[in-house]
Design a protein around this nucleic acid. Structure first.
Lengths: 225, 225
DNA sequence: ACCTGAACACCGTTCAAGT
DNA sequence: ACCTGAACACCGTTCAAGT
């Protein structure tokens, strides 16, 4: 016990500092140097509590995802799925580094927990047994994939903003949209046509609309009656 | 001209070597040291042809995605979308490092090209104008997200195989599935129930089933008649 | 049991100097 | 115009040594 208890290093404090570093500067912001400076110690002290950087990232992911995802009591299965999806969307939006962690493999315990929750609602929807795994997998892929894409876009926008101050979301979308509209309509009819929809779209609404498309597809699998 | 033309370094040759290194050992396998060894030169020579590692990764992505994605002439919009989706799925399966590149932002030219192709088919499906952007975005998110997840799983399996030889896909799925089945059915009813479906699932079929769920949702947006 | 801090083997990138 | 190769400022990780 070289330190008093207030100063004492612990796995918990290290994970907490890791989350702060990740939130502040992304995955590149979490380094063992930064942690040693923060705790005024050497790398060996960190390694005593944590096996390596991968394990630290996994622990940070668990810590951040431990809290939320409460679903209202009287909610329908569709509403419950939307709530889980939005919970993940917002968590990744707040902690963009989560995205890379969640796709590390579906066999991390947090990811399995989310898959279970989605699957339960798929069962509650009355989807035939043989189609349940496929349905839940499609939802899971979409939710993680789309939330991830949103986080990457947000992170890119933040980076762009450091070099071009004043480039907020609105002006970015407007610039990109006008580039689309000036594409050759013969070669890029779609991008040309929907430029304005892209300019005016809302990320969360867009994300939820995708969930609803899949839900429509899934409920169509139910036997009639 | 310090070298003869056969030896001459060029952006093209560097990108080609980068693809080989990426295929052989993933994103971590592409280093400037490896490239200098390959071409028996110094890092400055590489930097003369290529701005930095990011640009090299982007060029490698473009090179790999330049070839394929031909869609049969008489194909229906649904078939064309499935073809684009499967083309990307297979490309990512063959070059897992593509996954990280594709989600770098939807504003890289390759990604925009794929989005355009999907969007054209969405228009061909007769989706109302206001819903076209949403529909194409959902498809794009799912396709990239699910293909990405598949690549990550494949890469993880390959890594696991280096430490545990003989751990092929079948035995891995069987082990994981039996772990799911032994979960408490009260806490994990879904995972417990569908363990066998997970064990027996086919990755490509699973991926395509998800595309079809979204297609069902999209076609339901069409006005009746 | 917990921490120190020097050291190792890597990275991407730069740049004066050569031809 | 193109290439050389030493050097810089970083990484994650290890490990003998201390308390």
């Amino acid at each position: 016990m070289a330190r008093n208890t207030a100063d004492a290093l612990s796995r918990e404090r290290i994970v907490g500092a890791a989350v702060e570093l990740l939130d502040a500067a992304g995955e590149g912001g979490l380094t063992f140097r930064a942690l040693t400076e923060r705790f005024k110690t050497g790398p060996g002290a960190i390694y005593w509590h944590v096996a390596n950087k991968d394990e630290l990232l996994a622990a940070a992911t668990d810590a951040v995802l431990a809290g939320p995802a409460v679903v209202a009591e009287g909610a329908s299965p569709e509403e419950a799925i939307r709530a889980v999806a939005l919970g993940l969307f917002d968590a990744i939006d707040e902690h963009p580094w989560l995205a890379a962690q969640l796709s590390r493999g579906p066999f991390r315990s947090v990811t399995l927990g989310i898959f279970e929750r989605i699957g339960q609602q798929v069962q509650a929807l009355g989807v035939p047994f043989e189609a349940q795994f496929t349905s839940a997998s499609a939802l899971m892929s979409y939710i993680v994939g789309a939330a991830r894409q949103n986080a990457v876009n947000a992170a890119n926008a933040a980076i762009a903003r450091t070099t071009q101050p004043g480039l907020d979301r609105t002006t970015f979308l407007a610039t990109e949209a006008s580039a689309w509209r000036s594409l050759d309509p013969a070669e890029f009819p779609f991008l040309h046509d929907i430029a304005a929809q892209f300019r005016d779209h809302d990320d969360r609404a867009q994300f939820l609309a995708g969930v609803d498309l899949i839900l429509t597809g899934i409920t169509a699998l139910r036997p009639p009656g």
